[in-house]
Amino acid sequence: MMRARPACLTACLAILAAAALTACSREDTGERAAEGDGAERVAVVVSTLNNPWFVVLAETARDRAEALGFDAVIFDSQNDPAKESAHYDNIIASGYDAILFNPTDADGSIANVRKAAAADIPVFCMDREINATDAAVSQVISDNYSGAVALGRYFVEQVGETGKYVELLGLVGDNNTWNRSKGFHSVVDRYPGLEMVAQQSADFDRAKALEVLESILQANPDIDAVFAGNDAMAMGAYQALVAAGKAERVKVFGFDGADDVVRLIAEGRIAATAMQFPKVMAETAAESASAYLDGKRDFQQKVPVPVELVTGENVASFGDYGRRQD
């Protein structure tokens, strides 16, 4: 008969017990969410509200969901995966019926989507994808690469086949950052006379772009152009160029189709942007959620939405985060 249990064995059993308890509590969380009260509520989880483009995306999703008869609430992740994860925990515990989701990180956000799926809460991605095709019900995403190819071709037309330029990248964990960058470079790198003197991330943020470009201009005062991975950074870059007295000479190219950039294109102060259609994506996601809750199941996993080049020649056709209605 064993009179004294060895200390190490006790420790192992304690660890096992703790692991078992943790597993039980996770399952309990999922079951609680699955047994929610059935109220038709939609959560709109957006990467950030510190950017007008994402405000439009989130508010359009919320408004469309409300128009379809849901109660809808916006959750701001503030570009912080930890906040996003906390939002998911709250949403699952509160028993929401669907999530319209703009992720902060293509890889890091997958776990959140799986967590919601395990709680029988369908997730519909908007604008940004996650790197999984078996977690979300559907992903309505911008065709960023093709838009950036079109922008790159226009960039070469406007800047010429020789010159120096700066690229401002968005969040490095976001696929859109790289789809835009790679699409742009798939064109521009074909012209060896176009030299990229600096490539830095400004996190899709206007204030950071201003700081980053001011710093770059110290070492590279003779640049000819800036390609910014979104319009907030394009605005920050333009501000830096105005402050440096170079706005007339340096061409700025953005991406998104934000209203302030479209206006500056019309005034001839920014060269071009690529219009994404946040309202189309948000409305499509909300309508998909509604259809899912009505019983539809055959959704296309990825639904690319075209991105259109906006220049001084066609700017009159664009505004209000989309194509103007004729």
């Binding site: 293509a106 994808e129 790197n131 999984a132 095709t133 995403i141 960023n144 690469y145 093709s146 696929n175 790289w178 789809n179 790679k182 699409g183 798939s186 296309q300 996993q301 990825k302 690319p304």
Partner: peptide, 16 residues
């Protein structure tokens, strides 16, 4: 089909 590609960057790299 883009839906067969977890990361759209791969779909685009294939086209390139």
């Amino acid at each position: 089909d883009v839906s067969d590609f977890p990361n759209a960057q791969d779909f685009n790299a294939l086209s390139a």
